[in-house]
Design a protein around this nucleic acid. Sequence first.
DNA 1: TATATTGTTACACC
DNA 2: TGGTGTAACAATAT
Length: 294
Amino acid sequence: MPELPEVETIKRQLLKKIIGKKIVGLDILLPKLVWFGPKKGDSKSFLKNILGSKIKRVERRAKILILTLSNDFAILAHLKLTGQLIYQQQDGKVKSGGHIFPKKGTVVPNKWTHLVFEFEDKSKLFYNDLRQFGWFKLVPSSQLLRQKELKDLGVEPLDKGFSLKFFWEKLSKYPKRKIKQFLMDQKIIAGLGNIYSDECLFCAGILPTRMAGKINNKEAKKLYFCVKNALKKAILKGGSSVDTYVTLEGRPGGFVPFLKIYGKEGKKCKRCGNLIKRIKIAGRSSCFCPECQR
DNA sequence: TATATTGTTACACC
DNA sequence: TGGTGTAACAATAT
């Protein structure tokens, strides 16, 4: 599933491919995925206000992609659990080495392809989504920051605003929150999901069930640097392909071999050899090593 | 066929 | 008021 590093990877690849290109076609095969402002499923207005415009900027905020258009509109896109954006240079099938989810050799478009953007140079951008939880919202650029999807988001963990001081203050602001839930709260730190919160807690040697208010200064410092490092390393490797995530070329991200704890229930801990356990926290699965994490 | 899956939000409670 | 916890919801594959 795409979290910050995965969306950042897609953003960086999109930048190189679609900046300045004019959108000359858009197939909306599943209208419920698109919103025109607050209106869900208004594919007619969505289409009308996109066609003929150029891609001016591509940005990321938390797990959301922001495509600013030349016509004073912007597209907000959230891939949720299973969204994929795949770029194709010219007509035909994507030649990607055949690693597109769910099966090796799957091509696009396929039964999970719900949106197809076509650019002036005949290149295409496909949006696939197995569970159909993702969304694309077209909003006036001037009101971008007023959108509810953006306005309440917390700090970007790789920005300067995410300082140790900030982290420490927030920990004391929500003392009764389990640290795992704290890390995943988009209103505090924007962009961490289940994978990277588990990885960061393992890295810092802290149990996911620990209360934020009981984290001491030394632990907080360690966790802070684990968050930054985990995200930076994952971005360098093109993200983690868990579930259905692929890069813009339809390839899996390269970070999976570096995951130490996420999804490793029942396996041996890489650090101490003990068995990795899994529990549910707020309905979400959390993997941890009972020996290394205290 | 029942279940598991996760990001987000709505809502009840103190 | 705002921190906290829980449940619901999206749709699909297995």
